[in-house]
Amino acid sequence: MTAQSSRFILICSGKGGVGKTTLTANLGIALARLGATTAVLDADFGLRNLDLLLGLENRIVYTAQEVLAGSCRLEQALVKHKQEPNLALLPAGNPRMLEWLKPEDMRQIATMVGEQFEYVLIDAPAGIEGGFRNAMAAATEAIVVTTPEVSAVRDADRVIGLLNSEGVKPIQLVLNRVRPKMMASQEMLAVDDVTDILALPLLGLVQEDEQVIVSTNRGEPLTLGDSGSPAARAYTNVARRLRGEAVPLIDPSKERQGLRARIGRLMQTKIF
């Protein structure tokens, strides 16, 4: 793989805790399973977690820090996933790196990684400060993760503004922690509301799913198995769409069958 044909995708959100790292881990595994060589870069140097979600925390020897310092080769720092050898993690270095790390450093690391992998997923830290800007420098396209909540959508909007001004594109949206029942009863922002407000194409819808927590406990991303839980399917579909497959998007709040769902839809009919 050459750097030119690689895709450098930033996974970001603005607001913290909306599911960036979970998406990065699951998407990384899903892409690898679809046959694409994929590297995930932990760009959250302050609060690194990607290693933990992938179950690779005990196999880290070197990090991005040693690679940058030239004290180890990239291959030595990359941690290959045992079950899914198409996937490798480049761990974040010491939090003190934040003091001197510059956007050029991140760009340099990403370029090196891109020489060996088709997909380079960059797990950004929350916020819009230095750490985020460093991560953004390494990317050519972005996935913005948000939940259907006012604060998350507002922060996503800030991030989209920054991505636009840096010329990062395309920018696509993943809506996480969707609760179909709440959406159907209009107590949660609808999918269309969020995509309209942010004016981004929708790359995926991930439901609120307990299995996400179970899989995090184990350090085994949902996309590793064939569990078929709603979130697992959603993450795999995101990977497929990223690769250009036309996988239809189904709004779970409109999908629901039965009398209650029908009454719910009736209530939404415009009468004047």
Binding site: V150, V153, G161, Q186, E187, L189, A190, I197
Partner: peptide
């Protein structure tokens, strides 16, 4: 009114100012 509508309107306003 359902809270989703309120959320949408509040967001539109706050984003117009943010932007």
């Amino acid at each position: 009114p359902a809270s989703a509508d309120t959320a949408k309107q509040r967001l539109r306003l706050v984003l117009a100012h943010d932007r």
